[in-house]
Amino acid sequence: MLVADNIVKAYATDAGNAPALRGVSLRIAAGEFVCIMGRSGSGKSTLLNILSSLLSPDAGQVRYQGRDLAGLSARERDRLRATDFSMVFQMHHLLPYLTAFENVLTPFLSSLRPVSAEKRRKALDCLARVGLAEKADRLPGRLSGGEQQRVAIARALVTQPRVIFADEPTGSLDGDTGRHIMQILAGLNADGMSVVMVSHEPGYAAMAGRVVEIADGLVKAGA
C-alpha cells in the first residue's frame, strides 16, 4: 500500500548539509502495524513525515496505492491528508480554544459548510472509543496529558483514515498512560487500520506487528 524507495533527505545547517536519510527503502502493507525505531537523530521522524506527505524527499520516491506522492498536486496532497492519512504528534497540538469535541471535529472545519449531524455523531463515537465521551465539553486545559493525547487520537480517527502516522505518541506520557495509548492504537490496527508509529521504547515497539530499525539514516533491520 505504501512504498518508500531509496529515500534521501538532508537538512541545511550552518555547518553545511546534515544527512537525515541516506537511501531508505520500506514497504508497508494494508492493515500492518509498523514501528520505526531508532536513537534520537537517527532519521525516524523524518522518514515518518516523508511517508505521510508532510515533507518531500530530496531523492527517491514514495508511492501510495501505486501513485507517486511527488506527482500529486498540492490540492491532491491536502486531500490525501484530509481523507486517507491522519497524524498523531508527540505533543498532541489541540486547539486550546476549542472543546475536546470541537477539536475532534477540526478536520471538518475547513469550509463554510456546517458540520453535519452525522459527522458530529462520528466525533462523539471517536471520543467514546478513546474513553472520553463524558469529557467532550472540556477545553484541553482542563484535561490531563494522557487525555489530551487521546483527544488527538480521536481527531485522527474521525476522518476514518486508511493509515495513522503517530510520531512518538507516548513520548510525553507516563508509563501507564503510554500503555493505554498503545492499546488504543493496537485496537485500531486490529480493526484493519494501518498504523505507522515512531518510538524509541522497545516495550511499546513489541506491541507492533513489525519493527523497522533505523540508524544513521539507513534501515538496519525490518525493511
Binding site: D78, R79, R81, A82, M87, T106, P107, S110, S111
Partner: peptide, 15 residues
C-alpha cells in the same frame, strides 16, 4: 504551530 497543524490535518492553503 496551529497553522502547521491545520495544514497537516488537510486544510488547503486557500482554507
Amino acid at each position: 504551530n496551529e497553522i502547521g497543524l491545520l495544514r497537516a490535518l488537510g486544510f488547503s492553503k486557500v482554507a
